[in-house]
């Protein structure tokens, strides 16, 4: 054992690059909601890219190290303290045996990532260490951390502290976001006005925002009249249960769209009107309650262009930190 949890934070889980390949039986990919920041944390401490990190939602944990290590905190602006002394974010630093890592209040963003040299060495389940709490799978006992947990840390190759991500490559977390979406799926079920309202509205993230989905409030959307298909359910927003893409935007009852994230429910009976493009999923993951969002429509080519730009940024990050 190499790390003891003194205080768990609000919803701190072990995550990595995820668990692809089981969505057909309802097991979602899981993994860090902000993969960019999670990768940065691993690079800073000299870990493999798929090493497991801690994802801290809104609030940091309090952790005691039972052995020396190199640590980095990225993602949300959640200022770390070591033995009460401030430590930087997006920069690796050394911890000694017995040191306690704690955090100030969140300044911006939603999820901070803590990487420790060697990675969190919890058992690999279906190819990943990621926690999928709905299915009690992965991480520490398939759940968020609790006080008293002990986390094993893998062997490190001796990464030096003092690595830093250049300012231009650090994520920022504005109070207003534009999230790009490809419309489609069941958007034909919206009236023209409903579709316009979806793209025009300023949506505000509610407190119902977790690893499964992000629920927004801001406008009521109108659906076209129809005769309910057999098996669909009577509400105009019901469909015969269908698969849900990661990032898809469903609108139960025509109010409060929900963007599904990496712990998505894999299917269900609500109309989806579009999907957040892969390049912008990190930004959704860094959205905290009360921030405002506009959904901006792009086509497939626009989405693929954004994906290439993100890949270039990941490559620049690797170059800068190695």
């Amino acid at each position: 054992m190499a790390l003891s949890v003194l205080k768990p934070g609000l919803a701190t889980t072990v995550q990595d690059t995820g668990r692809p390949g089981y969505y057909n039986v309802g097991i979602p990919p899981s993994g860090s909601l902000d993969q960019y920041s999670s990768l940065a944390a691993n690079l800073l401490v000299g870990n493999a890219e798929d090493a497991a990190v801690l994802e801290c939602t809104y609030m940091g944990p309090e952790l005691r190290f039972d052995r020396p290590a190199t640590v980095a905190v990225t993602g949300a602006d959640l200022p770390p303290r070591l033995g009460g002394e401030p430590r930087p974010v997006w920069e690796s630093f050394a911890v000694e045996m017995g040191d306690v890592l704690s955090f100030d209040f969140l300044r911006s963003g939603a999820r901070a990532y803590i990487a420790v040299s060697g990675g969190f060495d919890v058992p690999v389940m279906l190819g990943s260490r990621s926690t999928y709490a709905l299915g009690a799978l992965g991480g520490v006992g398939g759940r968020a951390l609790a006080a008293g947990d002990e986390l094993p840390i893998g062997d490190a190759d001796g990464a030096a502290p003092g690595r830093s991500v250049p300012a231009a490559l650090r994520s920022t977390h504005p109070k207003h976001r534009e999230i790009r979406v490809m419309m489609g799926l069941y958007d034909h079920r919206l009236t023209d006005g409903g579709r316009r309202a979806f793209l025009d509205a300023e949506w505000r993230l509610t407190t119902l925002a977790d690893r499964t989905g992000f629920r927004y409030r801001g406008a009521a959307l109108e659906f076209r009249e129809r005769v309910a298909p057999f098996g669909a359910g009577s509400d105009p927003s019901n469909i015969v249960d269908a698969p849900y893409p990661i990032g898809s935007i469903q609108i139960p009852g025509g109010v409060e769209p929900i963007v599904l994230h990496r712990d998505a429910v894999s299917g269900g009976g609500y109309v989806m009107v579009g999907t957040v493009i892969s390049a912008d999923m990190d930004d959704v993951g860094q959205s905290a309650p009360n921030i405002t969002t506009r959904f901006v429509e792009v086509d497939l080519d626009g989405a693929l262009r954004a994906r290439r730009e993100r890949a270039d940024r990941l490559e620049a990050l690797r170059e800068a930190v190695r």
């Binding site: 490809m182 799926l185 698969p243 893409p245 990032g247 898809s248 999907t275 493009i277 693929l304």
Partner: peptide, 8 residues
């Protein structure tokens, strides 16, 4: 398409 990484 469901975004750039799903087909429905």
């Amino acid at each position: 398409f469901g975004g750039d990484d799903h087909i429905f």
